[in-house]
Write a protein that binds this DNA or RNA. Structure first.
Lengths: 243, 243
DNA sequence: CGGCAAATTGAAGTATTTCAACGTCGGTGG
DNA sequence: CCACCGACGTTGAAATACTTCAATTTGCCG
């Protein structure tokens, strides 16, 4: 939650992302002119809760987390964003959640006003945003499916599978993929994980151990998990679709 | 899961809904020409899982439920739709879930092909759809927040609050609102509720009783709950935002 | 090598699931 | 009209899973 933000000027790290792939060169140039690269260290605040977002953002590196404050004071994390995910583009309505850096992260920030203007003129960008929101909706529904499992162990298995599928081409997550299994790096703390999975850090720890004892995974380090048999996790987890 | 569907021809029950409110009269006329009213009885199937949706739908009466089949065979319900909610408009991608009537229900069905065509020509309809998807995303996130509570009682309290806020102007849900409290009718079975809240019917039953013993609600009939103090529920539930 | 934060483990208490039995309500047929 | 049936909801009791709090270990950084 510090305020120091490193601003770098060079800014074409986002052009390769899928949502920008099909856009007209002209649109891309316009976007480049209102964009800025911002770097954050873990736990820095990106956007505050309750304020209209200052910019539209697109993650280019690392992980962000979304956190919401509830009436009872709890502040659960309910989503992780990574490369290619966008945020802050809900028509300037105040954010109902805070955006924070979960790891060291890099985002591309588009100035809000001109961005909205470009969207208005560019149907394909508009379409890209719609697809993005559809993706966010489907991801939220996947989370719901995971959260509705009643054993912590199963929810954790679901989380690991999401890591393998949704973050499949993210080398910060998937260390390596061999016949013997997959090495995944957990990008967040046990505490954050507990929030995401509706539990407590101690239970998450025990759930990891349970999966290991069962033989489905191996705990190389607290944040480096070797998944021996994704199939076994699926069976045990009834997890989200393997998209 | 029967196949009998009553098709009624008259079709202007959807014009009053918020998402159609601001549209050009011309667009509305076009939509009317490709629309059809369909009525379902409780438990009838509306759209099948895994198929591209046959039509774009908008609920005009009653409740639909979304159900997804997981690899392990479970078929949890993860969302309820009601008056004004739309479905099947994800660019003709196959549905990843089934749509069923949870109660007797009435929907307005737009033929898919011409609907997409009209959307392409009508930016305001396109915008309305985007707003709709944003709403779906936010609702899914609200559910996540509720599901991440670790006590069933708290999740149930959250559900009751959603009933009071999201379905506030639905007289099928809110029977009456007085100084003494609110009477809500639960539109789904304990079994469905258990699915939504990641639990089992027996636990839901006990959770209702726990809320009653605590004095926050009164169980008039299994499906008719009198909420004495919404505030108490909020405190206990850390529930979704009271939008 | 210390020192700190995060993660893990242990043990006791609480909540939930499970399985079985019992009620309750609405509909059907005698 | 009443008895019965079946579906759904509720309750009870034992087994299981989770949370809680305290204590320990681990891993990281200076």
């Amino acid at each position: 939650m510090q305020s120091e933000v490193f601003v770098v000027d060079h800014s074409s790290r986002w052009r390769g992302l899928p949502q920008f792939a099909g856009l007209a060169e002209e649109t891309l140039t316009e976007l480049a002119q209102i964009s800025r690269l911002r770097c954050y260290r873990a736990d820095q605040s990106v956007l505050h809760e309750g304020e209209p977002p200052e910019f539209v953002g697109c993650v280019t590196k690392g992980f962000l987390r979304l956190r919401r404050t509830l009436p009872d004071g709890r502040q659960p994390i309910f989503e992780l964003l990574t490369e290619g995910d966008m945020f802050g583009h809900a028509f300037g309505a105040p954010q109902t959640y805070a955006v924070e850096a979960a790891t060291a992260a890099e985002i591309c920030a588009f100035r809000r006003r001109p961005f909205d203007e470009i969207v208005r003129r560019s149907p394909d960008l508009d379409r890209a945003l719609l697809m993005n929101v559809l993706g966010e909706r489907d991801r939220a529904r996947d989370w719901m499916t995971i959260l509705s499992r009643q054993r912590v162990t199963d929810r954790l298995a679901g989380f690991l599978l999401v890591l393998c599928s949704r973050f499949a081409d993210n080398e910060a997550v998937i260390e390596k993929r061999t016949a013997a299994g997959i090495d995944v790096r957990i990008p967040i703390s046990r505490m954050d994980l507990a929030h995401l999975l509706g539990s407590r850090p101690e239970s998450i720890s025990r759930a990891f151990r349970a999966l290991a004892d069962r033989g489905d995974i191996e705990i190389r380090k607290p944040d480096l998990i070797h998944i021996k048999a994704p199939g076994a996790l699926v069976a045990g987890a009834g997890a989200a679709k393997l998209s």
